[in-house]
């Protein structure tokens, strides 16, 4: 389970070093507040949620929360493979430019294979929001991959946007 928590924290923060530090602090908090665990909740879902909430708490406490979002493409891409391994840089860069909440949505659904309800539980959003995020992200990436696509769609996802279902 520890590698999965590390992966979650790394993807959340964007770098392995800072991810490990956040995970360590979150584990200490989980250890101190284990009474918050509710019986019946899968331990992995609870642990992911605790790390996410811990990170969110640190972000809120930070003097300049918007300044925390800068991630170097090179170091982020390293999360997708070790040195010498072939990395899909385009995909890695695309994911790296997503807001953390959206990166985690991808990780939880595509990487951890959680259903939308559990992914929503981790990220404190309704399952519908998870579904909408996936559609938006996939559509935006498809725009980027399709040379005839509309580039403006791809740019939209980099910024904050309302997550209500979109009907075209």
């Amino acid at each position: 389970m520890l590698p999965r928590l590390m992966r979650f924290a790394d993807l959340l923060v964007g770098t392995r070093e800072e991810g490990t530090a956040v995970l360590r602090r979150a584990l200490q908090r989980m250890l101190a507040e284990e009474h918050r665990y509710q019986r019946g909740v899968a331990l992995d879902v609870w642990a992911f949620g605790e790390i996410y909430r811990h990170w969110l708490g640190e972000l809120r406490d930070h003097v300049n929360p918007m300044g925390q979002a800068n991630i170097e493409d090179e170091s982020f891409a390293r999360l997708f493979g070790e040195e010498g391994e072939e990395i899909d840089m385009m995909t890695a860069n695309f994911i790296g430019n997503l807001p953390p909440q959206q990166r985690l949505t991808l990780l939880l659904v595509y990487g951890e294979r959680l259903d939308h309800a559990d992914a929503g539980r981790v990220l404190d959003v309704p399952p519908e929001t998870i579904a909408v995020r996936l559609v938006r992200i996939t559509a935006a990436f498809a725009d980027r991959l399709d040379p005839y696509g509309d580039e403006s769609e791809a740019d939209m996802v980099d910024a904050f946007y309302p997550e209500e279902p979109r009907f075209s």
């Binding site: 993807l11 391994e85 992200i137 399709d146 696509g149």
Partner: peptide, 26 residues
Amino acid sequence: RRVHALKDAHSRLEAAFEAVLAGEET
């Protein structure tokens, strides 16, 4: 063409996260 692009995007995103897991196991 849109569906083709969406399929491509979907498969690349999935593959990327499979690679992340492989990296962590390493």
